[in-house]
Design a protein around this nucleic acid. Sequence first.
DNA 1: TAACAAATAGGAATCATTCCTGTTTATAAT
DNA 2: ATTATAAACAGGAATGATTCCTATTTGTTA
Lengths: 122, 122
Amino acid sequence: MYKRYSKQRTLILEIVKSTHSHPSADWIYNKARKIMTKISRGTVYRNLNQLAENGEINVIKDGDVMKYDGNILRHDHLLCTKCDSVYDINILPKDLDKKVQRLINFDVKQISLTIEGICQNH
Amino acid sequence: MYKRYSKQRTLILEIVKSTHSHPSADWIYNKARKIMTKISRGTVYRNLNQLAENGEINVIKDGDVMKYDGNILRHDHLLCTKCDSVYDINILPKDLDKKVQRLINFDVKQISLTIEGICQNH
DNA sequence: TAACAAATAGGAATCATTCCTGTTTATAAT
DNA sequence: ATTATAAACAGGAATGATTCCTATTTGTTA
Protein backbone atom coordinates (compact mmCIF):
# COMPACT_ATOMS: atom_id res chain seq x y z
CA MET A 1 0.00 0.00 0.00
CA TYR A 2 1.33 3.38 -0.96
CA LYS A 3 0.36 6.84 0.14
CA ARG A 4 -1.38 9.15 -2.29
CA TYR A 5 -1.09 12.90 -2.20
CA SER A 6 -4.08 14.34 -3.92
CA LYS A 7 -4.33 18.02 -4.74
CA GLN A 8 -7.41 18.14 -2.57
CA ARG A 9 -5.62 16.90 0.54
CA THR A 10 -2.73 19.28 0.02
CA LEU A 11 -5.12 22.20 -0.37
CA ILE A 12 -7.10 21.30 2.75
CA LEU A 13 -3.95 21.00 4.83
CA GLU A 14 -2.70 24.35 3.52
CA ILE A 15 -5.97 26.03 4.43
CA VAL A 16 -5.96 24.67 7.97
CA LYS A 17 -2.30 25.61 8.43
CA SER A 18 -2.82 29.08 7.02
CA THR A 19 -5.15 30.37 9.72
CA HIS A 20 -5.20 30.67 13.50
CA SER A 21 -8.97 30.93 13.51
CA HIS A 22 -9.77 27.27 14.32
CA PRO A 23 -12.19 26.85 11.43
CA SER A 24 -15.06 24.39 11.05
CA ALA A 25 -15.24 21.84 8.24
CA ASP A 26 -17.82 23.99 6.51
CA TRP A 27 -15.61 27.07 6.60
CA ILE A 28 -12.74 25.04 5.19
CA TYR A 29 -15.04 23.62 2.49
CA ASN A 30 -16.11 27.08 1.39
CA LYS A 31 -12.56 28.40 1.37
CA ALA A 32 -11.43 25.39 -0.65
CA ARG A 33 -14.22 25.84 -3.19
CA LYS A 34 -12.93 29.29 -4.08
CA ILE A 35 -9.72 27.65 -5.28
CA MET A 36 -10.97 24.24 -6.40
CA THR A 37 -14.52 24.83 -7.56
CA LYS A 38 -15.68 21.24 -7.75
CA ILE A 39 -14.31 19.90 -4.45
CA SER A 40 -16.96 18.05 -2.47
CA ARG A 41 -17.93 18.16 1.19
CA GLY A 42 -17.20 14.47 1.58
CA THR A 43 -13.63 15.02 0.43
CA VAL A 44 -13.13 17.79 2.97
CA TYR A 45 -14.46 15.68 5.84
CA ARG A 46 -12.53 12.58 4.79
CA ASN A 47 -9.27 14.45 4.54
CA LEU A 48 -9.74 16.37 7.77
CA ASN A 49 -10.29 13.07 9.59
CA GLN A 50 -7.29 11.56 7.92
CA LEU A 51 -5.01 14.50 8.63
CA ALA A 52 -6.14 14.43 12.25
CA GLU A 53 -5.43 10.70 12.53
CA ASN A 54 -1.94 11.28 11.15
CA GLY A 55 -1.41 14.01 13.71
CA GLU A 56 -0.91 16.65 11.04
CA ILE A 57 -3.73 18.77 12.47
CA ASN A 58 -5.71 18.86 15.71
CA VAL A 59 -9.41 18.63 16.43
CA ILE A 60 -11.34 20.72 18.92
CA LYS A 61 -14.85 19.83 20.00
CA ASP A 62 -16.89 23.00 20.11
CA GLY A 63 -20.40 22.03 21.13
CA ASP A 64 -21.70 19.77 18.42
CA VAL A 65 -19.33 21.09 15.77
CA MET A 66 -15.76 20.04 15.21
CA LYS A 67 -13.12 22.68 14.66
CA TYR A 68 -9.67 22.18 13.24
CA ASP A 69 -6.35 23.55 14.36
CA GLY A 70 -3.16 23.62 12.32
CA ASN A 71 -1.11 24.18 15.46
CA ILE A 72 0.02 20.75 16.64
CA LEU A 73 2.23 22.00 19.45
CA ARG A 74 0.64 21.24 22.81
CA HIS A 75 -1.58 24.09 23.93
CA ASP A 76 -4.90 24.87 25.56
CA HIS A 77 -7.99 26.71 24.38
CA LEU A 78 -10.16 29.56 25.47
CA LEU A 79 -13.68 29.19 24.10
CA CYS A 80 -15.98 32.19 24.12
CA THR A 81 -19.54 30.97 24.50
CA LYS A 82 -20.95 34.22 23.15
CA CYS A 83 -19.18 34.38 19.80
CA ASP A 84 -17.90 30.78 19.53
CA SER A 85 -14.36 32.00 19.04
CA VAL A 86 -11.46 29.80 20.05
CA TYR A 87 -8.20 31.32 21.29
CA ASP A 88 -4.90 29.60 21.93
CA ILE A 89 -3.34 29.78 25.39
CA ASN A 90 -0.72 27.93 27.39
CA ILE A 91 -1.68 26.85 30.89
CA LEU A 92 -0.70 23.24 31.36
CA PRO A 93 2.95 22.25 31.62
CA LYS A 94 4.21 20.51 28.48
CA ASP A 95 5.21 17.34 30.29
CA LEU A 96 1.82 16.81 31.95
CA ASP A 97 1.18 13.78 29.73
CA LYS A 98 4.06 11.92 31.34
CA LYS A 99 3.14 12.99 34.87
CA VAL A 100 -0.44 11.87 34.43
CA GLN A 101 0.70 8.66 32.80
CA ARG A 102 2.69 7.84 35.94
CA LEU A 103 -0.28 8.54 38.20
CA ILE A 104 -2.98 6.52 36.52
CA ASN A 105 -3.43 3.15 34.89
CA PHE A 106 -4.57 4.47 31.54
CA ASP A 107 -2.87 4.71 28.18
CA VAL A 108 -2.85 8.49 27.74
CA LYS A 109 -3.08 9.71 24.14
CA GLN A 110 -4.09 13.31 24.54
CA ILE A 111 -4.82 15.84 27.25
CA SER A 112 -7.04 18.75 26.44
CA LEU A 113 -7.89 21.71 28.59
CA THR A 114 -10.63 24.06 27.53
CA ILE A 115 -11.60 27.19 29.40
CA GLU A 116 -15.10 28.37 28.64
CA GLY A 117 -16.27 31.85 29.30
CA ILE A 118 -16.76 35.24 27.71
CA CYS A 119 -14.03 37.09 25.85
CA GLN A 120 -13.06 40.77 25.88
CA ASN A 121 -15.26 41.60 22.92
CA HIS A 122 -18.40 41.52 25.04
CA MET B 1 -42.20 34.63 36.06
CA TYR B 2 -42.23 31.66 38.36
CA LYS B 3 -40.43 28.38 38.29
CA ARG B 4 -42.31 25.17 37.54
CA TYR B 5 -41.38 21.80 38.89
CA SER B 6 -42.80 19.19 36.56
CA LYS B 7 -42.72 15.50 37.35
CA GLN B 8 -40.71 15.01 34.19
CA ARG B 9 -37.94 17.37 35.25
CA THR B 10 -37.75 15.82 38.69
CA LEU B 11 -37.48 12.35 37.19
CA ILE B 12 -34.77 13.37 34.72
CA LEU B 13 -32.71 14.99 37.45
CA GLU B 14 -33.08 11.90 39.63
CA ILE B 15 -31.93 9.64 36.83
CA VAL B 16 -28.84 11.73 36.12
CA LYS B 17 -28.02 11.95 39.82
CA SER B 18 -28.53 8.23 40.36
CA THR B 19 -25.66 7.03 38.16
CA HIS B 20 -21.95 7.63 37.78
CA SER B 21 -21.99 6.33 34.20
CA HIS B 22 -22.18 9.72 32.44
CA PRO B 23 -25.17 8.78 30.31
CA SER B 24 -26.26 10.20 26.97
CA ALA B 25 -29.62 11.88 26.44
CA ASP B 26 -30.86 8.77 24.70
CA TRP B 27 -29.90 6.51 27.60
CA ILE B 28 -31.69 8.87 29.98
CA TYR B 29 -34.73 8.95 27.70
CA ASN B 30 -34.98 5.16 27.67
CA LYS B 31 -34.52 4.92 31.42
CA ALA B 32 -37.19 7.57 31.96
CA ARG B 33 -39.64 5.80 29.66
CA LYS B 34 -39.60 2.76 31.88
CA ILE B 35 -41.04 4.87 34.67
CA MET B 36 -43.03 7.46 32.73
CA THR B 37 -44.13 5.68 29.58
CA LYS B 38 -45.24 8.69 27.57
CA ILE B 39 -42.35 11.05 28.21
CA SER B 40 -41.01 12.50 24.96
CA ARG B 41 -37.47 12.95 23.67
CA GLY B 42 -38.01 16.69 23.38
CA THR B 43 -38.82 16.89 27.06
CA VAL B 44 -35.67 15.02 27.99
CA TYR B 45 -33.47 17.28 25.87
CA ARG B 46 -35.19 20.45 27.03
CA ASN B 47 -34.82 19.56 30.67
CA LEU B 48 -31.24 18.38 30.37
CA ASN B 49 -30.33 21.71 28.81
CA GLN B 50 -32.20 23.59 31.47
CA LEU B 51 -30.70 21.62 34.35
CA ALA B 52 -27.26 22.20 32.87
CA GLU B 53 -27.91 25.93 32.55
CA ASN B 54 -28.97 26.05 36.20
CA GLY B 55 -25.78 24.25 37.15
CA GLU B 56 -27.70 21.29 38.59
CA ILE B 57 -25.89 18.87 36.28
CA ASN B 58 -22.80 19.01 34.07
CA VAL B 59 -22.32 18.39 30.38
CA ILE B 60 -19.44 16.50 28.79
CA LYS B 61 -18.76 16.64 25.07
CA ASP B 62 -17.93 13.14 23.90
CA GLY B 63 -17.32 13.34 20.18
CA ASP B 64 -20.55 14.44 18.63
CA VAL B 65 -22.70 13.25 21.51
CA MET B 66 -23.40 15.06 24.75
CA LYS B 67 -23.14 13.19 28.02
CA TYR B 68 -24.51 14.25 31.35
CA ASP B 69 -22.97 14.14 34.78
CA GLY B 70 -24.80 14.47 38.08
CA ASN B 71 -21.55 15.24 39.87
CA ILE B 72 -21.25 19.02 39.98
CA LEU B 73 -18.15 19.11 42.16
CA ARG B 74 -15.16 20.19 40.09
CA HIS B 75 -13.43 17.21 38.55
CA ASP B 76 -11.79 15.98 35.39
CA HIS B 77 -12.55 13.16 32.99
CA LEU B 78 -10.82 10.18 31.49
CA LEU B 79 -12.35 9.25 28.15
CA CYS B 80 -11.63 5.85 26.68
CA THR B 81 -11.71 6.12 22.91
CA LYS B 82 -12.20 2.38 22.50
CA CYS B 83 -15.33 1.89 24.61
CA ASP B 84 -16.49 5.52 24.96
CA SER B 85 -16.52 5.21 28.73
CA VAL B 86 -16.02 8.28 30.86
CA TYR B 87 -14.32 8.05 34.25
CA ASP B 88 -14.04 10.70 36.94
CA ILE B 89 -10.62 11.78 38.14
CA ASN B 90 -9.08 14.70 40.00
CA ILE B 91 -6.03 16.29 38.46
CA LEU B 92 -6.50 20.03 38.45
CA PRO B 93 -6.39 22.00 41.70
CA LYS B 94 -9.83 23.18 42.78
CA ASP B 95 -8.88 26.85 42.80
CA LEU B 96 -7.55 26.83 39.24
CA ASP B 97 -10.49 28.93 38.10
CA LYS B 98 -9.37 31.82 40.23
CA LYS B 99 -5.71 31.47 39.28
CA VAL B 100 -6.54 31.46 35.60
CA GLN B 101 -8.92 34.34 36.05
CA ARG B 102 -6.06 36.42 37.47
CA LEU B 103 -3.80 35.54 34.54
CA ILE B 104 -6.04 36.30 31.61
CA ASN B 105 -8.51 38.91 30.51
CA PHE B 106 -11.43 36.54 30.07
CA ASP B 107 -14.55 35.94 32.12
CA VAL B 108 -13.96 32.32 33.12
CA LYS B 109 -17.11 30.23 33.57
CA GLN B 110 -15.81 26.70 33.44
CA ILE B 111 -12.54 24.82 33.07
CA SER B 112 -12.63 21.32 31.72
CA LEU B 113 -9.80 18.87 31.44
CA THR B 114 -10.29 15.68 29.46
CA ILE B 115 -7.70 12.97 29.12
CA GLU B 116 -8.24 10.75 26.12
CA GLY B 117 -6.73 7.34 25.78
CA ILE B 118 -7.38 3.68 26.32
CA CYS B 119 -8.59 2.23 29.60
CA GLN B 120 -7.56 -0.94 31.45
CA ASN B 121 -10.26 -3.04 29.84
CA HIS B 122 -8.38 -3.28 26.56
C1' DT C 1 1.65 2.11 -21.06
C1' DA C 2 -1.20 -0.82 -18.42
C1' DA C 3 -3.03 -2.21 -14.17
C1' DC C 4 -5.05 -1.13 -9.95
C1' DA C 5 -5.81 0.70 -5.49
C1' DA C 6 -6.64 5.25 -3.57
C1' DA C 7 -9.21 9.24 -3.83
C1' DT C 8 -12.89 11.92 -5.72
C1' DA C 9 -17.66 14.15 -6.86
C1' DG C 10 -22.21 14.18 -6.03
C1' DG C 11 -25.80 13.08 -3.59
C1' DA C 12 -28.42 10.06 -0.42
C1' DA C 13 -28.63 8.45 4.32
C1' DT C 14 -27.89 8.88 9.29
C1' DC C 15 -28.61 10.45 13.70
C1' DA C 16 -28.38 13.61 17.61
C1' DT C 17 -30.68 17.55 18.59
C1' DT C 18 -33.94 21.32 18.01
C1' DC C 19 -38.23 23.22 16.66
C1' DC C 20 -43.29 23.49 16.04
C1' DT C 21 -48.22 23.06 17.43
C1' DG C 22 -51.98 21.97 19.89
C1' DT C 23 -52.84 20.26 24.66
C1' DT C 24 -51.99 19.75 29.59
C1' DT C 25 -50.59 21.40 34.11
C1' DA C 26 -48.37 23.96 38.01
C1' DT C 27 -48.57 28.23 40.23
C1' DA C 28 -50.47 32.91 41.62
C1' DA C 29 -54.09 35.93 42.12
C1' DT C 30 -58.80 36.47 42.90
C1' DA D 1 -61.64 26.67 45.73
C1' DT D 2 -61.73 28.72 40.99
C1' DT D 3 -59.80 30.91 37.36
C1' DA D 4 -56.33 32.79 34.50
C1' DT D 5 -52.08 32.15 32.41
C1' DA D 6 -47.53 31.13 31.37
C1' DA D 7 -44.63 27.03 31.67
C1' DA D 8 -44.08 22.52 30.26
C1' DC D 9 -45.52 18.64 27.66
C1' DA D 10 -46.24 14.90 23.77
C1' DG D 11 -45.67 13.79 19.29
C1' DG D 12 -43.71 14.35 15.32
C1' DA D 13 -41.48 17.15 11.68
C1' DA D 14 -37.34 19.73 10.55
C1' DT D 15 -32.45 20.75 10.87
C1' DG D 16 -27.74 20.27 10.15
C1' DA D 17 -23.24 18.26 10.76
C1' DT D 18 -21.24 14.22 9.38
C1' DT D 19 -20.89 9.75 7.16
C1' DC D 20 -21.84 6.54 3.59
C1' DC D 21 -22.53 4.87 -1.21
C1' DT D 22 -21.37 4.33 -6.13
C1' DA D 23 -19.67 5.21 -10.40
C1' DT D 24 -15.68 7.76 -12.11
C1' DT D 25 -11.10 9.76 -12.01
C1' DT D 26 -6.27 9.83 -10.82
C1' DG D 27 -1.55 8.74 -8.64
C1' DT D 28 1.74 5.32 -8.30
C1' DT D 29 4.14 1.16 -9.45
C1' DA D 30 5.59 -2.35 -12.51
